[in-house]
């Protein structure tokens, strides 16, 4: 059973007395967990991270670390280290000294410093770079130095603020796997901030979806993807068709001028709802065999699938399929009951 490590209770952050950046955040995470704060820019995810790191004080609410309130503990006294977005390396020191910084501050004996710096550098595949200057390294290498520098103090929590944001796609994919590996190797909690939903799905144990200073949903990647709690989450995580619908009764929802069987219940009768269907869950068939009939508006090749826009009576549906229909063709669309997500209007 993993143990709770950090808890935020009723944390709010208001800038200049008017801009609410965080609105009553309640969140906890466990030892050795890979937790991702996911959301669009300005959703408060970085502020949350800075509050945990101690760089900002919440306007109200409490932060607990291992059960102890740490609101007023300065960053240098927290057992938490940070990997900054643009690395923030010390340009006046070489790679070795950058990584050794935390140990030098704690006056660790020289031979132990050497041992641990070697260890950290080999963990991020940078052995042999000790004497190099910061500016002679590529972005990806600087990022790895930043990680080595942050884990050298053996923190209980590592905060990562969009650490891969400045890297190109290929490098980012590589670093995602590497980061996940490092996290499992050192066995500490990672709190990872990103706006990239794919990154979040790939790496996390738990995803916290945020928008406009509020937590929208907390769950495993599979939960969040398959059972989004509201239209925002559905739209932000992956592609979605979101249409207005009416809940007729339990297990029955109507949208697109038709009533569909579904797996949701517990709504008020005739409640207006958001209906979410993933593009890959819509199946194209002959018009007479579909539940919805529409005309193919466009077909775009996306690599492993075609993205097809089908204009129905009330809505233009986005469909992902491996077999492309012709533009202008009439097609039928059908969907399985358990692929229809019904959610309260937010």
């Amino acid at each position: 059973m993993s143990k709770e490590l950090i808890r935020l209770t009723n944390v709010s952050m208001v800038f200049d007395g008017e801009t609410t950046v965080l609105d009553n955040i309640n969140l906890y995470f466990n030892d050795a967990e890979f937790l991702t704060l996911l959301g669009p820019s300005g959703c408060g995810k970085t502020t949350t991270l800075r509050i945990i790191g101690g760089f900002q004080k919440p306007t109200s609410g409490d932060v607990f670390f291992d059960g102890v309130r740490i609101n007023d503990v300065p960053p240098y006294k927290r057992q938490i280290n940070t990997v900054f977005q643009k690395y923030a390396l010390f340009t006046h020191m070489n790679i070795y000294e950058n990584v050794a910084f935390g140990l030098r501050i704690s006056k660790t004996p020289e031979d132990e410093i050497r041992k641990r710096v070697d260890e950290a550098l080999s963990m991020v595949n940078l052995s042999g770079y000790e004497k190099r200057s910061v500016n002679s390294l590529s972005g990806g290498q600087q990022q790895r130095v930043a990680i080595a520098r942050a884990i050298i103090n053996r923190p209980k929590v590592l905060l990562l603020d969009e650490p891969l944001g400045a890297l190109d796609l290929k490098l980012r994919k590589g670093m995602q796997t590497e980061l996940k590996k490092i996290q499992q190797q050192v066995g500490i909690t990672f709190v990872y901030v990103t706006h990239d939903q794919e990154e979040a799905l790939t790496m996390s144990d738990t995803i916290v979806v945020m928008n406009e200073g509020r937590i929208q949903q907390i769950g495993t990647p599979i939960d969040i993807y398959n059972e989004p709690k509201n239209a925002f989450v559905a739209n932000f995580i992956g592609e979605s068709n979101i249409v207005d619908g009416v809940m007729e009764q339990d297990y029955s929802v109507s949208f697109a001028n038709r009533t569909f069987e579904c797996v949701d219940k517990g709504f008020a009768r005739k409640e207006a709802v958001d209906v979410v269907i993933r593009p890959e869950d819509l199946v194209i068939s002959a018009p007479e065999r579909g539940q919805i009939i529409g005309k193919v508006e466009s077909v775009v090749f996306k690599g492993i699938f075609y993205e097809v826009m089908v204009a129905g009576e009330t809505f233009t549906w986005k469909v992902q399929t491996t077999r492309a229909p012709a533009v202008g063709q009439l097609v039928g669309l059908s969907v399985e009951p358990d692929n229809i997500q019904v959610m309260h209007k937010s």
Binding site: T82, F90, T91
Partner: peptide, 10 residues
Amino acid sequence: KVIEAAEDLG
């Protein structure tokens, strides 16, 4: 951020 990084490292 560089100053914050130093604080962060103790």
